[in-house]
Amino acid sequence: MYIKQLSVFIENREGRLDDVLEILKTNNINIISLSLADTADYGMLRLIVNTSARALEALKNNGFSASLTDVTVVRMPHKIGQLQELASLLCKADINIEYMYSISIGQDDACIVFKTSGKIEQFADQFKKDGVEFVTQNDIAAMVK
């Protein structure tokens, strides 16, 4: 149901993003998607990677403040208005989207990563009708070789 997202705290100074990416590269970790939320002093780097536990360990060993966060990933048809329907559904259920970003994978489908304030399993049936499905950790791992 949930996917482990890797979240890394990085200070807004030269070379820190490079440091994180270097560690991931050295540890043979493939990035499937990422988003960076920034403030004046620091940023929060959020990553979907093929092996999140190993990535976390590698970053921690290098002194980074990092954690794994449960996020939801859904796959939906690549058509106009699809994302709006999803947002509207959550809004009606009074569920807040803390943040979201996308994974681009192909011509026909789009993947959206999001963290919400409440559980969204309840919408599984409704999602199915719209052709929206939950993406599993295995699906994620299969996205890269």
């Binding site: 979240s7 705290f9 939320a37 403030t39 620091y42 929060m44 959020r46 403040s65 954690s67 943040y99």
Partner: peptide, 15 residues
């Protein structure tokens, strides 16, 4: 220093 026990991946929490 943002140690583990302060850590949140949400900017709002950090703010």
């Amino acid at each position: 220093e943002v140690e583990e026990r302060f850590f949140s991946d949400e900017i709002r929490e950090l703010e």
